[in-house]
Amino acid sequence: MSRLNDHFRGAARVLGFVALVLGVGAVFALIEPRFLSHASLNGIARHMAANGLAALGLTFVVIVRKFDLSIAGIAAFAAMSMGALIAAGLPLWAAIMGGLALGAVLGAVSGIAISYFELPDIVTTIAVGSICGGLAFLYTGGRSIFQNFFQSGITDLNDARLLGLGVSLWILLAVYAAAWFVMSRTRTGMAFYATGENPIAAHFSGIATRRFVALAYVLCALCTVLAVLLILAESGNAETNKGANLMMPAYAGVFLGAAVMGGTSVVATFGGILLITMLLDGFALMGVPYYYSDGVVSLILLGGVIAFSDSLREWITGLGLLRPRAARKSENRA
């Protein structure tokens, strides 16, 4: 009975979310008919691939109830490093491996500092991000890297198609499918969630909570590297500002998805990032400058989080019979 109820509630949330996506799509299509054009939809898919990978990485960190503000810095450093490797004549796969290895090290630095040495997550990741942002200038002093890019085949990641869909979208779907499986169908996923829900109880359940917190940062950095790789593939060169626009959509996608779906999860982030990318591309198509659309997306994020927050719903349904906070707390305890 209750199981059926849960399924029903879950289905209702998904349906509500699909309605939201269709609604936003319809509004854009009415204002700007080009929104539904082939080129525009392709663009959304491509941007969603990059945004979605960054958001997925952040999802792991948010599940263990931490923050990562080093995404932009790591993206920039990894972009320039992979660019330098390609320019040096290394094959594409080697450049990607180099980028991923760098990401793993950087993520491990933050992760170990935060979990094993118990440094504050926000300060640590801001510091690591800033250091990476600086290191990105190491190779060329900030000049764009483009040598060997076309010969390396990196642009195929952006242009090539498989069964009618872009390769980047396939990468996104594959990584999401793997992440979904790990997080909701394996004991590793349970351990991640338990670590976030109550680290002490998880520790007392024999779960190596520190290891999972550190691992979340490593996964986040790896996803960030993949995200910026797709951005390099789209633009055909590496610049120090390539990762600058990854962070905000990632946070918006994770938290909007969690708000709509009732909790942070791989599926919720997928939905959230789809919505955010549609909004960003829609605004871009309408000629709204990025800095405005960034603001609008942030507003929508705030609105979504507020609209789906429990305390606010309680507040609205409980108008007139407001009770002090302490009362509610003690009732929970009783």
Binding site: Y193, N198, I200, A201, G206, I207
Partner: peptide, 19 residues
């Protein structure tokens, strides 16, 4: 604070110590 993931159901909490 030490025994349960409070926002999670029994189905999540029961197996935690023996995944």
């Amino acid at each position: 604070s030490e025994g349960l993931a409070l926002s999670r159901p029994a189905l999540f909490n029961v197996p935690l110590a023996n995944l």
